[in-house]
Design a protein around this nucleic acid. Structure first.
Lengths: 171, 171
DNA sequence: CGCCATGGCTGCGAAATCCGCAGGCTTCTC
DNA sequence: GAGAAGCCTGCGGATTTCGCAGCCATGGCG
């Protein structure tokens, strides 16, 4: 899904305000559009256009491209604990050998909602969403710890989600 | 914003399929609606209604209520590293005294995107989004470690975000 | 039991939004 | 300078959203 973005651009970035993001260029206008949609993912294109100084059609084309490129997704987010998933945990993982290949396996697991490679005393941190204790136990002990390359894990079971935002753009 | 949800319901839950969520009841249909919106936050109400067996207006009313109650939010999400925020980290925190009051302070900080109380060798885990190294350093050393009650912290700087999903409903 | 709120669903018409497309402008390449 | 590519605008037609009136089941209450 992320593979066809490259090509096009060769060398010269003339505007240093743009960011280099694995192939996708984001100018100030696209940032502003994302900001609008971080406040309300269903905001009409015309309203966004008025806010960022573009026509409705232009906003629509940009949003579509951002979605296609995988730069942004527009989704409903909830607190899983609020919606019937009773056990959630962050798991720190130490790996010997190739970290990324382990990360890829974890990424393929549906219980893993969030996978990130880190520097520090863990190589990977993974957020896990489960139905109940048995399910959580199974995922951590049987599935994650059993992976080749996984040296050790440490779990942090969620007690209460206090904050969950996507408003970094608006500050 | 979250304060007027309580009231109403008194004691008797008759349907065990419903979840108790700090005042919000979610039946199977609302779950199904959320599932639809986790796939595409902009999906038309009529399409959702067809999928879950409800009229367009009914879906609209339910979605509005879920948003009002704070059970769900519909937003654009991105990888901050892709959008110009160059440093991101997970910070594990140990607290002496009241954990929740520390969590509340962190929640108020705009750089904290995600705050969760945990069981395990950390009391709190916080995800931080920063512009650059200086900013990150400032937040961790000057702001978080300086809070009364914070005994120690451990940081995990993000190297690469591998997965970020909200599709737990669809499995 | 009868009565009356309450909550949630449907149906419908009007208004707003989305969508596809044709055309214009600028930039880049050859 | 011709041609391609990228991005924008403007504009109808199709679709969606929105507000509201009405209906029905449920639950208290005298």
């Amino acid at each position: 899904m992320h593979s066809d973005v490259v090509a096009s651009r060769s060398a010269d970035q003339k505007d240093s305000r743009e960011f280099r993001n694995g192939g996708a260029q984001l100018d100030a206008v696209s940032l502003a559009i994302i900001e609008q949609l971080q406040e309300d993912g269903r905001r009409p294109y015309a309203a966004i256009g008025k806010a960022v100084g573009l026509s409705e059609a232009a906003v629509r084309q940009r949003v579509q491209k951002l979605l296609d490129q995988g730069v942004m997704q527009i989704v409903a987010v909830t607190d899983p604990l609020t919606v019937g998933f009773r056990r959630q945990a962050m798991v720190g993982i130490n790996v010997e050998g190739d970290v990324e290949s382990v990360a890829d396996v974890l990424t393929a697991m549906s219980e893993c909602e969030y996978v990130v490679m880190t520097a520090g005393s863990f190589d990977l941190m993974v957020e896990i969403v489960c139905e109940d204790d048995d399910h959580l136990l199974d995922v951590i002990n049987k599935r994650i710890r059993a992976l080749p390359g996984v040296r050790s894990t440490e779990s942090f079971v969620y007690l209460k989600l206090k904050k969950q935002t996507y408003m970094w753009g608006t500050r």
